[in-house]
Amino acid sequence: MMVPFRSLLACLCSVILLCAPAMGRVPEPSPAEQCLAANEGLSLGAALPRTAGILKNGAPLRVVAIGSSSTVGLWMTREEDTYPGVMRRELVRLVPSLQVEIFNAGRNGDTIPGNIARFDRDVFAHHPDLVIWQIGGNDFTWGEEAASLMQKIASGIALLRAQGIDVILMDQQYTPVILGTQYAKMQGAIATVVREHQVAYLPRFDMLHKAVQSGVSIMSLTSLDGLHMSGEAYDCVGRALARAIVAGVK
């Protein structure tokens, strides 16, 4: 049976009117984008002289990311979705001529002393220009004095700097499980070392906290285990770190 032209035209007009609001709607920014917006202009707070020289001269940049499961990128199925992988992609986007090689030396469950014990094999063997040292998530600080924590962190920084390597410290993640611990003791120890030793610092805990304060759901930045970061949080951290490195050099 033939549909009258006027009826068909009326149906088409109705469909267009129903779809028009959706077609004109601006997509909601992803949690990663909102996290980046909440942390726009982030500074690492200290110079990276070796990295700056390399980026200005166009030489290859070698980076080692060492830490625990946050560096491994637990629950991410692809290396490029971990924070070191995201950071590499963003660095190349920002500086297209840059040749950068990143070695992921994360180990699930590792601690500050465990990281330091691996420096010879997993850091110095790669002859890096820059090391990003993610610490704090697995160090049980309940019975340990803050001075002891600071001494451990400072000793690791001294070992890295003795090799002429630029260092960026990265602290704990802002997730429900971490918030249920005595996280403040570790955060305080890291902040004191950063201040006293003038170390470049990515304040991951505060970054993700700011994102939550800006309206991002903490669960969108957290994996299902309540401890590790989600893909959105890895994306935010990796891109924010790359942007801060490049901004610091410029």
Rank of each mutant, 00 (worst) to 15 (best):
Ala65Lys: 01
Asn39Asp: 14
Pro176Cys: 09
Ala184Cys: 00
Val64Met: 04
Asn115Pro: 03
Ala65Ser: 11
Ile168Thr: 07
Ser7Gly: 00
Val212Asn: 01
Asp206Cys: 00
Arg195Thr: 15
Thr51Gln: 11
Met87Ser: 01
Ala147Gln: 15
Gly53Pro: 04
Gly137Ile: 06
Ala189Pro: 03
Asn108Arg: 12
Gly215Met: 07
Met229Trp: 03
Leu227Cys: 08
Leu149Asp: 10
Glu145Gly: 14
Gln99Phe: 09
Leu149Gln: 09
Gly109Ala: 07
Asn108Tyr: 01
Arg195Leu: 15
Ser97Phe: 05
Pro21Thr: 13
Val177Gly: 02
Pro49Ser: 11
Val15Thr: 13
Thr71Ser: 08
Ile132Ser: 02
Met219Ala: 14
Ala38Asp: 02
Ala46Cys: 10
Asp206Phe: 08
Asp110Gly: 04
Glu196Trp: 12
Arg107Thr: 13
Arg107Gly: 08
Ile157Asn: 00
Ile132Trp: 04
Val216His: 09
Leu241His: 02
Thr77Leu: 11
Ile135Val: 15
Ile190Cys: 06
Met170Val: 07
Ser230Asp: 00
Ile178His: 00
Ala200Leu: 01
Gln134Val: 01
Ser30Tyr: 10
Ala200Tyr: 05
Cys35Phe: 12
Ile66His: 04
Gly137Asn: 12
Lys152Met: 09
Ala154Arg: 13
Pro4Lys: 12
Asp120Gly: 05
Ala10Ser: 10
Asp225Ala: 10
Leu94Val: 12
Gly156Arg: 07
Leu12Ile: 14
Gly58Met: 05
Ala189Phe: 04
Pro49His: 11
Arg6Thr: 08
Asp129Phe: 04
Ala242Asp: 05
Ser223Pro: 00
Met186Pro: 08
Ile245Asn: 04
Gly24Asp: 00
Arg107Asn: 03
Cys236Thr: 00
Leu44Glu: 12
Ala240Asp: 05
Phe119Tyr: 15
Val92Ser: 01
Asp235Ala: 02
Leu179Met: 12
Leu149His: 08
Trp133Gln: 02
Arg78Ile: 00
Glu101Cys: 01
Leu12Lys: 05
Ala240Lys: 00
Ser217Met: 13
Asn57Tyr: 00
Ser7Leu: 15
Thr141Met: 12
Thr222Ile: 02
Val177Ile: 11
Leu18Gly: 06
Thr71Asn: 04
Ile168Ala: 08
Cys236Asn: 03
Val167Ile: 12
Ala146Pro: 03
Arg6Gly: 06
Pro60Trp: 05
Thr82Phe: 13
Cys11Val: 06
Val64Ala: 06
Glu79Gly: 01
Met23Asp: 07
Trp75Pro: 02
Gln99Trp: 12
Arg78Met: 09
Ala233Glu: 03
Ala65Tyr: 06
Pro29Asn: 08
Leu9Met: 15
Leu36Lys: 13
Ser155Asp: 15
Arg161Leu: 07
Gly188Asp: 10
Leu94Pro: 10
Leu12Glu: 07
Ser223Thr: 09
Gly226Met: 02
Gly85His: 03
Ile102Trp: 09
Arg239Ser: 10
Glu232Lys: 02
Asn115Val: 06
Gly143Leu: 11
Pro4Ile: 03
Gly114Gln: 11
Gly67Glu: 08
Leu18Pro: 03
Pro96Leu: 11
Leu61Thr: 11
Gly114Thr: 03
Arg93Val: 01
Arg62Thr: 15
Thr77Arg: 09
Ser155Val: 02
Ala32Ile: 01
Leu179His: 03
Asn57Thr: 11
Arg118Glu: 05
Arg25Pro: 00
Ala46Met: 00
Leu91Ser: 09
Thr77Ile: 02
Ala184Ser: 14
Leu159Gln: 15
